[in-house]
Design a protein around this nucleic acid. Structure first.
Length: 284
DNA sequence: ATTAATGTTCAGAA
DNA sequence: TTTCTGAACATTAA
């Protein structure tokens, strides 16, 4: 599930503990789970990174980027159930990869844990890292978007705005959960074609994106009912308590207190919305 | 036994 | 060209 706020929480959780520290080992965990998607293979990874220090820990969309002093960077993509941990994994069976650091401090390792095993870990050279950073394969980070950026992006497609928000090539970082929350906060119908959004709606969208994502980061992300998402110390996030529509179908809308939150399906993903607060306009 | 779940990526069709 | 659909990845819980 990790979306932008959860991945940002992972980055903040490990950054101060590993920046500047020397990497002494990268190991596959001795678990029975299927080999995770790891590129290149371990010997090449070790040859290129062991003995180097961590230069920086940053986020690109929904990926954790650990740049080494040699110029290569680990890119961790948690996908559905991946976690980046300093300690205390939910279970030992689904640990996948461990990075060990020199010295004696509170935390000497970072673990990648992934129950479903859809996540990936890659080592990119500086050229590939630059390509990941620029727009093209991934759009601008959702937290960097201005109202003008939103106008530009929305003009590119007639797809419903909810579906467009999930297209990482348009805007990077928003996933299914936050898309519903953002549109409810912005009072925009999930069915409204992106191209048809008016200037006032684009401004509300820009504001809502910032407010929802920043609030979610402050709350260390959303831990849903299945309890999978955890921060670097295996603690739950708390933003799920602030959700206004996600998975709240059949409850009364907390904003208008009049209508019931509905669930529908768009692009094979659940959408939650209030039919009163988020009415679709017929024409431009 | 069937269904759905937060993400990404591909092929192929409309 | 754009958009949509389904499948694939693997696991768990209802």
């Amino acid at each position: 599930m990790p979306e932008l706020p959860e991945v940002e929480t992972m980055v903040r959780g490990i950054r101060s503990h590993i920046e500047g520290r020397k990497l002494v080992a990268v190991e596959r965990c001795p678990c029975k789970c299927r080999p995770l998607l790891l590129e290149p293979k371990l010997p090449a990874i070790r040859r290129r990174t062991l003995g180097q220090a961590v230069q920086s820990v940053t986020r690109r969309a929904k990926r954790v980027v650990i740049e080494m002093t040699g110029g290569d960077a680990f890119v961790i993509e948690p996908r559905m159930t991946g976690l980046v941990l300093l300690s205390d994994p939910p279970d030992v069976e689904h640990l996948r990869i461990v990075w060990r650091f020199e010295g004696v401090q509170a935390f000497n390792a970072v673990w990648f844990w992934d129950r479903r095993g859809l996540g990936t870990v890659r080592l990119l050279n500086s050229e590939e890292l630059a390509a990941l950073r620029d727009l093209g394969q991934l759009g601008r980070d959702a937290l960097d978007m201005t109202a003008d950026d939103w106008r530009e992006v929305c003009q590119k497609t007639r797809r419903p705005i909810k579906v467009a928000l999930l297209d990482q090539k348009l805007v990077a970082g928003i996933g299914n959960l936050y898309a519903s929350e953002i549109l409810h906060r912005a009072k925009i119908s999930p069915f409204q074609p992106a191209e048809d959004l008016r200037p006032a709606e684009l401004r509300r969208l820009a504001t809502a994106v910032r407010e929802v994502l920043e609030d979610a980061i402050r709350n260390e992300g959303s831990t849903l009912g299945d309890g999978t998402y955890r921060n670097a110390l295996n603690e739950s996030g708390s933003y799920q308590n602030a959700h206004r529509v996600y998975a709240r179908h059949d409850e009364r809308c907390p904003t208008c207190q009049r209508e019931t939150i509905l669930r529908t399906v768009q692009a094979q993903r659940s959408t939650f919305y209030c039919p009163n607060c988020q009415q679709q306009r017929m024409i431009r």
